[in-house]
Amino acid sequence: MLDLVIDARPASLGNGFSVRRILPYRLRRMLGPFIFMDHAGPVSLDPARVTSMDVLPHPHIGLSTVSYLFDGQVTHRDSLGVQQIIRPGEVNWMTAGSGIAHSERFEDPSMLAGGTLEMIQTWVALPEADEENAPSFTNYQPQELPIFTDGGIWMRLIAGDAFGLHNDVKTHSPLFYTHVVLKAGTRFGLPMGYPERGAYVAKGSVEVGGRFYTAGQLLVFTPGIDPVLIARETCTLMLLGGEPLGERFIWWNFVSSRRERIDQAKADWQAGRIALPPNDNVEFVPLPDDRSRPAGNPPPPPLS
């Protein structure tokens, strides 16, 4: 029933801001087109340290970043000149395509007064035909994301198609991504019709096949099996998956079906050929040291 259980690992973004990293994992690089997943928080922010936790401008290629908040507020700026505050229940969907740089800063007065933050960020790899598309950005408001409720179930469709729900979030391959809250004792299943499916336990605990799973675990299910998830307490799940895209290379914040394209992206960032956000261009994250590594050693930790 379960192919794998992935335990989130602590990861530092290099600025005193630690997250729980779920994907990629050494035994499971992707789940459908999802190639990266971080869970930040919940954390109460020290007013004296808030700005030091900003994620400075950094580049991406070959993917879409998907930011979703449970609590708090983050300001996004990118090379297209977009400046967008994201709040809980909204979706920031940035498609990097041929190359984009963006920053994520904590400028909300409530954050600066010691507020709380909790967010999930995923990366969705692009099909080969779309990897060099022009970059784009869209913020989707809560009213654009359908909600389903029924007997202990609350669910918001973030993207794709699931349980008969659909929205206008632009995706490039078949996938599903949902935010689900279950009351204790509620039984729930997974969307049908996708070969790769998983459930990340963000809060609480669930039972599957007589075993218990707790917050910080991603359950990867066997294709063709339709499991029943039982909430052992009020719990929050992120369900995700879809059609696999094939092998992808990932180095730092770059994703591509071609290794040489990663090398080109490194050179482009080093040479300043990926533009900085015009309204956030004073500082940026330099290209990490690319010294040779023994086979199997991980690349530099990605930024969100």
Rank of each mutant, 00 (worst) to 15 (best):
S52Y: 04
L182H: 05
E128I: 14
L126C: 13
I153G: 03
H166E: 08
R258C: 09
K183T: 11
G198R: 02
R261V: 15
P286T: 02
G204K: 08
E131K: 14
N15C: 12
Q270C: 04
L117F: 15
N279Y: 14
A271N: 15
E247Q: 09
D263W: 02
P88I: 09
N139G: 13
P42A: 04
S44F: 07
I35L: 11
I158L: 11
R293Q: 13
I100E: 05
M192D: 11
H166I: 03
T116Q: 15
Y213V: 05
A113K: 12
D7K: 12
R28H: 09
K203V: 04
A271P: 05
G209R: 02
V220L: 11
A96K: 00
N92H: 12
R105N: 10
E144S: 00
L45H: 05
R156E: 05
S256G: 00
A295V: 15
G152N: 05
G209A: 10
N133R: 15
R259V: 11
L45E: 08
Q141I: 03
K183Y: 04
Q83K: 15
S44Q: 15
W251K: 03
G115D: 01
V169H: 03
T95I: 00
A48K: 11
V285F: 10
L182M: 07
P286V: 00
